[in-house]
Design a protein around this nucleic acid. Structure first.
Lengths: 335, 335
DNA sequence: CATTCGACTGGGACCGGTCTCAGGTTGTCA
DNA sequence: TGACAACCTGAGACCGGTCCCAGTCGAATG
């Protein structure tokens, strides 16, 4: 009489009844099947197959205290990541890595102060098991909040000021910048400028360090401009740089390199004939830009995979740790 | 004795105790505060403020049956959306719209068959309240699954073959294509080709329809190539198209337009002097490309906002409905 | 004065899992 | 033969909320 409307999703009790065992046994089967007799296990598995049973995530989370999800937290102000192609690569990689582990990815955006506040509250409420933090700035209060809340966190790029407290997946910024600088020198350039990123980001600070180290005596302080990784800032920086004598420029992001190329063109310079311009990231933009941009490739797939792996370790109780990955020089037409 | 370790998050019972009321009353205050005396409400609010209490989402979901989250479902095969800048815009807009409603966004990727299977299971398990489906192909089995499961869904772009069953947020593809075609004609072009998208996507099919309608006698079947919205396909299509006499090309995506520009350049043609090339989407790429790409702007912010709004309506019980938004011609240098 | 109504409150069942624990078999070893 | 371990099982408490319902109280109504 009441079974007629077999609409509702089956619960663990129904599976238990159908398999002729207790809820506990069904639960054991679901979670690895240890200490379950072959007979019982088979009965349960058949019942699950027959009904298409799926455990209710919310109930499970309530009971275990584990959320079964990780947050992908973006902190850049609106327009910057808005059209940053790199974060999409990270996002996708992370989503796939999580799906393989039957976990879900929750996207969190903490741009405005109001958003940051509600995100902090959300995280401290324990709605997710851990956080993948994308692109942080030094002295970002969110970093302190994350540490205070004590939620497992892994950063993409060294979190300046909190290097020891949080896990990090990053590339060797200094070495990468040296590689690119060496490439430009090897191409015969001598007046080499750099469009650095913000000094409060690891990519802004350490790529400049590597660049300076490698250039040595060739380094010229007047040929350093700063941008914010965006196309517009690259364009503006390059416009200023062109007032000096310069024959090659290393931009700390592909987008800034694209902006720099545009600025050079507007000034009547040809790229790379009159001036070589290189980028950083190897975001999709680099290969398809006109001309294709010489850049340092960041291993996005490895970064996202490692972020998930390390974060899960930390959630499981491990201490924070850092992973440094290799970059690769990709020579295209622009430099 | 046991209160010493005041580490754990406060529960609704503790708030109730602290405020001197029952759990029920606290629950009422949290959910709108109807039928609660001013005194009780104030006591509860003070207790919440003092403890920093936040409701446990999982417990709430378990009790209410509502998940409090929406899925953002990507279905394109790997490399296509991989570097598609447009989906990032949608994603961000959706995330913000949801955050304002205290809901969360879960990112789901259904590229491989295995992923599609687990995604379908995930959705039918009711782990989210609704689905925002991005870029679907006709006869995609996922569409049937969504409909069968009966989960509230809103599509970005008309879901070919299921126009009536699912809610849709889209732009007027035909009118948009006509606008662009008219622009090219007005520029004096007569031999106008089109690089269309896949015929099983609304943008592939209807942009071609509008293009053909507008051109009328100028339309030449031999000047139509098909791509898959990617840079590479645009490049290949343009390479073929250059075998014919053509003085303008309308590509159904900015990425294909970029590819087409590259192909034209390789063939020694100048853009736009020798051949005009226009795109579609106004993804970030269009403005910063060299030359900047003339394109039809899709109102990404409106699209994402409407997706969330309509989806919530449907979840609340409304019938599926469709919203058609306006596009805007953005004239830049390429055409 | 009895009745009814509306505002307000708390008790307890319930959502669907997990997990601890006590207990029952069976087999092995002293 | 008894002790003990290893394997297997189910009962019931518990996670932290929501919500139905019964019940109280004061004011308005008849």
């Amino acid at each position: 009489m009441s079974d007629v409307s077999a609409k509702r999703k089956p619960t663990i009790r129904q599976i238990a009844a159908q398999a002729g065992v207790s809820r506990s046994t069904v639960s054991r089967v679901i979670n690895g099947g240890h200490w379950v007799s072959p007979d019982a296990r088979q009965a349960v598995e058949e019942a699950i197959l027959a009904t298409g049973y799926t455990a209710n995530h919310h109930a499970r989370s309530l009971a275990t205290g584990r959320a079964g999800s990780l947050a992908f937290l973006l902190t850049e102000p609106q327009q910057l990541l808005f059209d940053d192609p790199t974060f999409a690569l990270l996002l996708r990689g992370a989503a796939e890595a999580l799906a393989q582990r039957a976990m879900t990815l929750v996207l969190l955006v903490a741009g405005t102060p109001a958003e940051r506040e509600s995100v902090a509250q959300f995280l401290s409420a324990g709605h997710v098991d851990g956080v993948m933090l994308i692109s942080s700035h030094e002295s970002d209060p969110l970093l302190d909040q994350l540490i205070e809340v004590g939620i497992p966190t892994v950063c993409c790029g060294v979190p300046l000021g909190h290097e020891r407290e949080l896990s990090t997946i990053s590339v060797d910024e200094v070495a990468s910048a040296r590689t690119m600088a060496a490439h430009l020198v090897a191409q015969g350039h001598r007046r080499i400028g750099m469009i650095a990123g913000p000094d409060d980001t690891p990519g802004g600070r350490y790529r400049l360090v590597g660049f300076r180290d490698e250039l040595g005596e060739l380094f010229d302080e007047t040929l350093v401009e700063q941008g914010d990784y965006s196309y517009e800032s690259g364009l503006a920086a390059m416009t200023r740089m062109l007032e000096h004598d310069v024959d090659a420029v290393f931009a700390a992001s592909d987008r800034m390199a694209a902006g720099a190329i545009a600025a050079a063109r507007r000034a009547g310079r040809r790229v790379p004939e009159d001036i070589a311009i290189a980028g950083f990231d190897d975001s999709g933009l680099a290969a398809t830009h006109e001309p294709p941009i010489t850049t340092m490739r960041q291993p996005w797939d490895q970064i996202s995979a490692q972020m998930v792996a390390v974060l899960l370790e930390v959630i499981a109780g491990a201490s924070p740790r850092s992973v440094i990955l290799d970059t690769e020089l990709v020579v295209r037409a622009s430099a």
